[in-house]
Design a protein around this nucleic acid. Structure first.
Lengths: 241, 241
DNA sequence: CGGCAACTTGAACCAGCTCAATTTACGTGG
DNA sequence: CCACGTAAATTGAGCTGGTTCAAGTTGCCG
């Protein structure tokens, strides 16, 4: 029997840690649906760094972020999770999670215990491929992020973040042209590698250029083509306020 | 029977993609030694981005680098490999490698074919743990690198690179206080996230402070404690040339 | 020995940061 | 339901670490 941690049948090649899941399995859904969902509220922790590894989770609804901390206590937002994403790949290291995962709104997850994962790795070629693919993709994505920090301006990175987030929402079957950014500006800044003030200024610029409209955390993608053009240009000069 | 891609029995918690391999298996060596080694010369490619995935390699001797390219052709050095390291974790994604791997000197590797990996995942709990741990660690390491780019100065990142490289050499049983940097300054710059001129200037500074001595690519770690102190300080002010 | 690639060095510049002051939103208790 | 306190976000102004651009210099390989 085919089986997967993910129940998302969409191609999600450019998203973070979410199963890309080939287009050939629909019967999977039934199995994962029979499992018990745990629900959490905004600001709840799914797990904290150094917690004992229990297994992998899939996010069924809501959203979350993964953060790591430096010795000095500085925070870095490694990832944002949307429904269908796998959470917990950081935990295989030495039987403990290395990140902390915090929910950004009311959300629910399903746990796949470590023992189940081992069982599936033994018995399902499909699952083996799926999990290895997910982890491999997570590595490559992280490396690509490094690259984009080098060659893109802050503005381009913010735009890329918005477009990518929107695309992922679309892949989840959610509203993707008008949606809520559940994370704080600080989270966006951390994830995209800049300071909060820069994020704030860039978002304002994008509004003034009428590429997006933004009120608090509610955003509308007004001109997707225009946003893609920002990514195209090597330098994105703005002719002042 | 216990079995691993790696034959390195040292704890290598802070290194890149190299098996941390618990301290309980020596008999492994025999098996991997019976396999055929492929040897390569400097500048040879082990594989290129988009090559068909064949399996994982372990580096037996020599050194190599993994690079990825952006759409614009810019290069980013994702990793340097030393003996004992696993190469090819980027390849599970969609049956093809996403990086290119280039040797920095005469080196040899052993291939573990995809079919063998599947076989081992089915039959060896030890191997399952080992592989998952390696991949998990690679993800976390990449995220930690993002963090260090945010909070460390260029100088600190270069020093961290040198200390880490030295430590990894030590873990391989190689000379680690006086060794050769087989990669170019450009490679170091790419991997640590700065331009070549900055690397050059920082290395000169470190020589002037008598923390290292450097001639071309041959480096001596003169004052390891001093180097660690550089990492300690939040700001590393230099009282000019 | 000649030519190219790698590296070094200097000087000027700038994208994004820091610091600082408001403004706005939001949760909580009365 | 409002008042109050705290956290989040915005905005301005000035600063700087690291980049860019532009010459050199050195070393290596045929």
């Amino acid at each position: 029997m085919t089986y997967s941690l993910s129940e998302n049948t969409f191609e999600k090649a450019n998203t973070h840690i979410s199963f890309p899941f080939a287009d050939n399995c629909i019967q999977v859904k039934s199995l994962s649906d029979s499992r018990s969902h745990k629900t959490f509220r905004k600001k709840d922790y799914l797990y904290c760094a150094s917690d004992l590894f229990e297994g992998l989770y899939t996010l069924k609804s809501g959203s979350a972020k993964a953060v790591i901390y430096s010795a000095e206590g500085e925070e870095y937002v490694a990832n944002f999770f949307l429904p269908g994403d796998i959470i917990g790949l950081d935990g295989f290291s030495q039987s403990q999670y290395k990140q902390s995962v915090v929910f950004l709104e009311t959300s629910s997850v399903v746990l796949y215990k470590e023992s189940e994962i081992h069982h599936l790795l033994q018995n399902s070629a499909f699952f083996r491929n799926d999990l290895l693919q997910q982890m491999s993709k997570a590595i490559v994505l992280e490396e690509e992020r490094q690259l984009s920090r080098r060659e893109q301006s802050s503005k381009q990175r913010v735009v890329e973040f918005l477009l990518n987030y929107s695309k992922r929402l679309k892949d989840c079957g959610l509203r993707y042209e008008s949606f809520t950014l559940n994370m704080s500006r600080t989270d966006i800044a951390s994830h995209t590698g800049m300071v909060i003030e820069t994020v704030s200024r860039i978002l304002k610029q994008l509004q003034q250029q009428e590429l997006i409209s933004l009120e608090h955390r509610d955003i509308d993608i007004i001109d997707e083509t225009g946003l893609h053009e920002v990514l195209g240009r090597a330098n994105n000069l703005v002719y002042e306020t």
